[in-house]
């Protein structure tokens, strides 16, 4: 159930952590500034292609279980409570608090548009979860605040350790005849209680030992050194350039008013010329997938970039 980062053999996993984080930030940013349904849908398509390309389609399907109810809630809230639209589809009885039910086409369309936005955001974070290794990502910030980064990486490391600790304590308790899985609710809570206390005590004890060992090794005594560095390769520069182009094109289309769409009071029509900048955004954002395709097809590309 817990999503875990697993390294796969494609280009996406061989990038500098900054590149992939910047790329994900760009899509997140663009999905927040666009309100035009076509723009949002094409962003979703881009994310979808990247998820499939990086081999995470199965994991993404698990995310749908959370995403679809949220999207439905958004559509329902918008449809029920927003009465700015003018094309009435259904007008129903009076309800307490809400008032007269008046569902308009515009509110439904807005809800759907925002649903697509939420889907895009959830998908891009799903992409993030599966393609960025937490430790490598956190190391990006170690230059600015090494205490915070140290705390975060230490807690990431403690996570699996504590889970195995918990299992160990459970087993010990079971061997001693404490019933944890059977008996009444009250009884079970009473029996779990010592496990939690022991877990807290032993992990705090270990944290102090860890701190003492850090102190003995001279933590914080001088300037921090770096154990391993991430390499910047040509592929990183290429993808960052394309992402910057996508952001510029996206912001330009936002300023010109192409990326925004007014749902209220009446759905406006749009013509195809509004999408000129969108083509640039999509081509630039889909570039990692294209590069990955080329990388698999021509080994020479793999060597060169």
């Amino acid at each position: 159930m817990i999503p875990l980062y697993r390294e796969k053999d494609n280009l996406i996993y061989k990038l500098h952590p900054f590149t992939i984080a910047f790329f994900i930030f760009a899509i997140f940013f663009l999905s927040l500034i666009f309100t035009h349904p076509v723009y949002l849908l094409s962003l979703l398509a881009v994310v979808f292609i990247l998820i499939v390309d990086s081999g995470n389609f199965k994991e993404w399907k698990g995310y749908l279980k959370i995403a679809i109810p949220l999207v439905l809630i958004i559509i329902i809230i918008n449809a029920l409570f927003v009465r700015v639209g003018s094309t009435v589809i259904y007008s129903g009885p009076r309800l307490p608090f809400i008032g007269k039910v008046r569902i308009t086409l515009e509110a439904l369309a807005y809800g759907a548009g925002m649903g697509v936005r939420l889907m895009t955001i959830i998908s891009i974070f799903c992409f993030y979860t599966y393609t960025v290794q937490p430790d490598r990502f956190m190391k990006l910030f170690s230059r600015f605040g090494n205490k915070t980064v140290f705390i975060v990486t230490l807690s990431i490391r403690l996570f699996p350790l504590m889970i195995s600790d918990y299992r160990r304590i459970m087993e010990v308790q079971r061997c001693r005849g404490v019933k944890i899985d059977s008996g009444g609710f009250r009884n079970r809570i009473k029996n779990t209680f010592p496990i939690v206390s022991v877990l807290l005590l032993s992990s705090l004890e270990r944290s102090f030992q860890q701190a003492e060992s850090m102190y003995a090794r001279g933590y914080g005594s001088g300037k921090r050194t770096v154990y391993n560095r991430e390499l910047w390769r040509i592929r990183d520069y290429m993808i960052i350039t394309m992402t910057v182009i996508a952001i510029i094109a996206g912001v330009a289309s936002y300023i010109k008013g192409f990326g925004t769409y007014s749902y209220y009071p009446v759905l406006t029509h749009f013509d195809i010329s509004e999408f000129n900048l969108l083509y640039i955004v999509i081509t630039a954002l889909i570039f990692p997938a294209i590069l990955d395709w080329g990388w698999k097809k021509w080994p020479i590309l793999k060597l060169k970039i």
Binding site: I163, L204, S207, Y219
Partner: peptide, 18 residues
């Protein structure tokens, strides 16, 4: 901040997260 406090924060945070 001394290392003890940092290790303590990390421990409590991961306990809360788990």
């Amino acid at each position: 901040v001394d290392p003890k406090e940092m290790a303590l924060i990390a421990t409590m945070a991961s306990l809360a997260g788990i």
